[in-house]
Every structure is written in C-alpha cells, then in structure tokens.
C-alpha cells in the first residue's frame, strides 16, 4: 500500500518538474516532438533509478561511516557523471537498438538537475507517505526516485504533445519560442495542482 502512495504522490501530486522545478532545462529544450520527449524520458528513468541506488549506497556505506558528509555534492556528481558514461558504453555493447533510442540523450543527463536533485533529496529529507515522517530506506528511495522520473516523463510527453499542436498556431512574435512554452508549462502546472490532496 505504501508503495502505491509513493508512486501516486511522486508522479502526480509532487510532480518533480511542475511542482519542484527539477529538470526544467531538458523539459524546455527537447520537448518539441513527442518522440524525442519519450526518448529523453526513458533515458532519465533509467539513469535516475541507477544513480539513486548508487548514491544511496555511497551515502550510507561510505560518507556517513567516514564522517565526511560534507563531501556529498562532490562525490555524488562524480559518481553520476561516471555512471552515465558507463551506461553509455555498456548500452552500446549489449543493446545497440536501445542505445540508438536513448544514446544521444545520455550525455545531456549528467547536467540534468533532476538526477543530482533526487539523489540528494532522498538522503536528506524526511518523507511521510500516509504514516509518520521518516528517512527513506533503500527500496523506498529507489521506488520514490524512479516514480519521480516517471512523473518527469509524463509531464514531458504531455508538454511535447501540446507543443506539437502549438507549432501550427499563430503565436505573436514576441511570444515565439521559450516564452509561450513557459506560459504553457504554467497552465500545465496549474492543472497538476488539481492533484493536490489526492494522498
């Protein structure tokens, strides 16, 4: 039951993009087409799941025992950068078709703040999913981070769909490009607020 609440809360209620503003750069950058948005989302889900697991282990089995939690930022970003690189190499070797679908997005992901953001969030904040607030354990962390990434994907694909339609409409010159995208995202965020109170 708790996991269902985690998933619903992460995907809809506290959507990482529209209510916590993590990962806005790719959200605006690669959301012109539904197919690219879907590709990017797939890559993000994959990397976030792996990165959260790795940084969780790093935090609780290396940084905390050694008493060097202040190295968190440096250690996490290095691990994420290395991980992304490794995923790219492995993917190229074992599954060329998946690599073709996700490959071009991988280098962009290191600087996607959703990855580092979630990695830091799950080890630094108490969450309450129905019960009392507590620090997340390993499984909860990974489930929470992965469903947040799915939430990122949902918002991203919805947004790309809207932007595809917008291509065909007549937008005033000063609004073209990023401004109209931002205003559209604002309205999308407004509709996601309707999920508040669901859990």
């Amino acid at each position: 039951m708790e996991y269902i609440i985690i998933v619903i809360s992460a995907v809809f209620v506290n959507n990482i993009l529209l209510s916590q503003f993590l990962g806005v750069c790719p959200f605006l950058g690669v959301s012109n087409k539904v197919s690219t948005a879907a590709g990017m989302s797939g890559a993000v889900v994959f990397v976030i799941a792996l990165a959260t697991l790795t940084t969780y282990i790093l935090q609780y089995y290396v940084l905390v025992p050694l008493g060097i939690e202040f190295m968190q930022t440096v250690a996490f970003i290095l691990v994420i950068a290395a991980l992304v690189q490794m995923v790219e190499i492995i993917l190229k070797k074992i599954s060329p078709s998946l690599y073709q679908a996700l490959g071009i997005f991988l280098p962009l992901i290191t600087t996607n703040c959703a990855v580092l953001g979630l990695a830091i969030l799950v080890v630094s904040k108490e969450f309450s999913f129905g019960g009392a607030p507590h620090m997340l354990n390993m499984v909860e962390s990974v489930v929470y981070a992965t469903s947040s990434a799915v939430g990122f994907g949902v918002a991203m694909i919805l947004f790309a769909g809207i932007r595809e339609q917008q291509e065909l409409s007549n937008v005033p010159k000063a609004f073209q490009g990023t401004p109209i995208a931002l205003i559209t995202a604002g309205i999308l965020a407004l509709s996601f607020m309707g999920f508040a109170g669901l859990v």
């Binding site: 209510s19 109209i180 604002g186």
Partner: peptide, 9 residues
C-alpha cells in the same frame, strides 16, 4: 509553481 512559469514567460 504555475506562477513561476507564467511570470518568467
């Protein structure tokens, strides 16, 4: 959140 997007836009 929505205000952030709209104001920036």
């Amino acid at each position: 959140a929505p205000g952030a997007f709209i104001v920036l836009g």
